[in-house]
Amino acid sequence: MIWSSWSEFIEMGGYAGFVWWSYGVTVVFMVGEVVLLSKRKRTIIQRLGRFIRADRSKRNAE
């Protein structure tokens, strides 16, 4: 550990704005990609599942 205090860590040797905006935006993009992707996957599985069940019950009725 190279920092002696929490506030020294936050200050980043005077470059806090540059360092934290870099890391922050990177985290937002990467976490955002994962969240949107898992949402998309869930929607597809639900939608296709419904579609397939409806198709099967229609075929059974015929």
């Binding site: 550990m1 190279i2 920092w3 860590f9 980043m12 040797g13 005077g14 470059y15 540059f18 360092v19 870099s22 890391y23 990177t26």
Partner: peptide, 20 residues
Amino acid sequence: LLVTPPDYRMGDSYRIIYIH
């Protein structure tokens, strides 16, 4: 962010390298 030392010329701004 916690272990590597600061750069002798760029100070702590160089830590952006680890994601850039």
